[in-house]
Write a protein that binds this DNA or RNA. Structure first.
Lengths: 204, 204, 204, 204
DNA sequence: ACGTGCGGGACTACCCGTTCCT
DNA sequence: AGGAACGGGTAGTCCCGCACGT
């Protein structure tokens, strides 16, 4: 939802051209959306020549977007799992995660939201690699959330419903946060979702 | 979130050129996003010449988008209030509303989401009329939800928090629904939010 | 070449809408050229409604340009004749005139050149009212110069040649002055032309 | 002032796309002016694809104009120097040059004037690459004229003044020639300027 | 006579994502 | 991997009617 990794503009050289392209694309998609981000802009930001793009991503912009989304999904999934082990439970994980996202939004002055949501809204569903990557990203997050909630003892069906709801609430909150230039919706959404998860946990 | 009104392509003539432009823009923004929707496409869909657009919307695309968002916000706000009076309570209202949105998504084969969310993600916050319209649309919906929940006897502070959370969950669910080509996330989000509202209502 | 009259922006109201349109058009043509000056810009500068333009100038932009050129030609011709009577001879007149033009260019920070020259270069010769007005403006100036030189006792054929040469030199100097942001070419051209006229005058 | 080279429409293929763009732009600027000449028109005239323009001239129209002006300035400077060596003196050079320009104007039916003068009048001084190219073109011509006059034995200060005056007279004459559809002003201006140069030459 | 709202397209400079050839 | 070339697209603005109220 708000992955960063090392800023590709500051620490540019170490990573490969391919990785720099992915990181730059993800960042620009967050800030401006998928369609509004030009290939030239990505190329310039990554310091890569034009031919490289079609060498690494023969499917062009959609292929690069798919890779960027995959990378973002992996990063966020890892953050989620780390938050789980740190917090020791699904509810705490969601709270920690919301706090992290809220901090990221504030750090970017509410310019960087979820790189997946933008692509999701700007691409006609089902048509290309990017749309598929969007589906997979959401599915991975939902699964990760669901497993964490299940691990708390919640029945798997209920856990999955709560996971979907939590994901929706956070994604929606990121949009509201961007529009209002305030991280409050994200923190509030995480808090409410966490409360719901706690309430679903079998007592004792 | 998913407003329709009469399809501007089938019943074109009755409405004024201005209204046709707004309706067509809202529809195309829902389907393709803000940036991906070209002015020429809107013009063609509305059957209007280019001169009309800049006559009615001197600020160009941003002005048209602001008007489209305002119209969508008004439409949805009205639907919300109607659902409130029909359902007789905030929780029922949210459920009815979610059902309505879910139906709209299915009817459009999951192509039309919320016209406000796309603009929200594709426009740099604060830069133009469209961004402001986005803020206002979200604020109006949140207020309408909040007032309905308050009317159920929930303390206004808690009602406002629930309104924001409900709004976030529904917006997020619309994104997931679009990505997965399934209305289930929308129905589930409305159900969960309604349950939360019911739980917040003072007993007796 | 660099006519002004009262600035149409400062003393706007007294003149009629027609006169304000002419004055504004002349000024903008000087600064930006004929094609680059939009009708809307002229209308806005003159504070006139759109319908007025086609009421007063049924031929549209070309008709307005013709009127603006006529007005400028008249103004400059009058300045020339006044300079003649003040200076008491053709050479002195040219010098005084050059000094006036140089002062105007400096006052406008070298943005306002000859409103006729721009139209002359931007309009296909012979096609419309504006082109004709350009011819007439140059003819009037040449005649005025020629008569003044004749009055000094120079044979009319030689006077006419000197008039044409003087006109060319001043018009060219205005272009160089604009390009170099310096009034020196205008002063130099007037000086050289005046010397030539003095040399042509029969001694005694 | 009236450069030609091979007509880009008749002998199109040999030159590179970049050169064809420059030649076509210069020709169209001469005929219609800078602003009135559209990029599409240049592209069509040069037989170049649209993308090429911004490939060769990243600064767009202004960059192309600057290149066209540079090329025209070089061509004219070369013509001037050739006329100098042929005529054997500055005065003869100016006469030969004027005759050449007059012939060019007649050949083009008085449609093609100086490509530099149009840009000079239509561009706000100092704002972009084109304005700078205009300044340089005038400076190069003035220098070439000045050096030729100096070579005749005229003191350098006087030579420079005469060069500027000659340049102004010829530029102005090209405007008058275009407006009146007559090459006479050009021939007359060259004759008068040449006479002035001869008179400045030290006797013996 | 004079002004206005509304429309009507063509055109502008500019930039896009992509592909071909080296 | 690289960079030149490609052509269709962008938002925006142009100058100009036509029909309607003064």
């Amino acid at each position: 939802m708000t992955p960063d990794g090392p800023d590709p503009d500051t620490a540019r050289r170490p990573a490969s051209a391919r990785d720099r392209l992915i990181a730059t694309a993800a960042r620009l998609f967050q800030e401006q959306g998928y369609v509004a981000t030009g290939l030239n802009e990505i190329l310039a930001g990554a310091g890569a020549p034009k031919g490289s793009l079609y060498h690494y991503f023969p499917d062009g912009k959609a292929g690069l977007a798919a890779a960027a989304i995959d990378a973002a999904a992996s990063g966020l999934e890892a953050s989620l799992k780390q938050a789980h082990s740190t917090a020791g439970g699904a509810a705490g994980m969601v709270e920690a995660y919301g706090e992290m996202l809220a901090g990221w939004m504030e750090a970017s002055h509410f310019r960087r939201g979820c790189p997946v949501a933008t692509v999701a809204l700007e691409v006609t569903p089902g048509d290309d690699a990017a749309a598929q990557a969007v589906r997979e990203a959401f599915a991975r997050w939902r699964t990760a959330l669901s497993e964490a909630i299940s691990a708390d003892g919640v029945a798997s069906k209920r856990a999955d419903a709560l996971a979907g709801f939590t994901l929706a609430a956070i994604e929606g909150a990121l949009i509201l946060a961007r529009a209002d230039a305030s991280a409050e919706p994200v923190r509030a959404a995480a808090r409410e979702a966490a409360a719901l998860i706690r309430a679903a946990k079998p007592q004792g």
